[in-house]
Amino acid sequence: METVIYTKKLTKRFGNFIAANELSFEVSKGEIFGFLGANGAGKTTAMRMLCGLLMPSSGEANVAGFDVYTETEKIKQNIGYMSQKFSLYEDLTVAENIRFYAGIYGLSFAEIKMKTDELLTKLDMRSEAKKLVSQLPLGWKQKLAFSVSLVHDPKIVFLDEPTGGVDPVTRRQFWDLIYYAAGKGVTVFVTTHYMDEAEYCDRVSIMVDGVISALDSPGNLKKQMNAPDMEDVFYQLARKAKRSE
């Protein structure tokens, strides 16, 4: 299997504080990789380093075959990103948001038109195209934000708590979109607080206090820790945490 994300002892310090401590893992092409951890565990920090938003303090990392220290521009061409904060412009309409993000990724006018069309159909949001994003329910916004992060057909997509605060039904629909993308060969790197979502991942890593304390498939983790579900796995690991936010 082709490795698309590779890290070795990747570390980020803020002053004396180590937000991410010697992270080492690999993610293969088309994999859905879950990144779990309590609040303040360091998930966002790790993701930002991989996206080229934060300069690592030490360690190695490769994304889509490019080095995070020196080749961030090439990485940017190959990734999509949905931040933990909201990624769309509330004062623009649905269609305008799609066109804007397609535009800044350098798609041509014809491609932008085609993509907008395709996306609206896929999300079943044709009748909402001219609505301001602020008028949409949160679940719809998040589905839209996800699709927009894929508008330039990236190899890898980074999703930071994409379903935070979304109702279970919409979360399920959201995961259908993720499966659809992964099925087309897109690698999905996703953080979440929901343990049912952890079950949907091919593999999960559980971060505690900036350190990866477990990394395997949900099935193996449950077996190893003698746990009935991921909830229990997570609880057994996370309660060892010392820092909290």
Partner: peptide, 10 residues
């Protein structure tokens, strides 16, 4: 938070 998205884009 949209600035992050802009900075992640090429």
């Amino acid at each position: 938070g949209t600035m992050e998205i802009l900075l992640v884009s090429p």
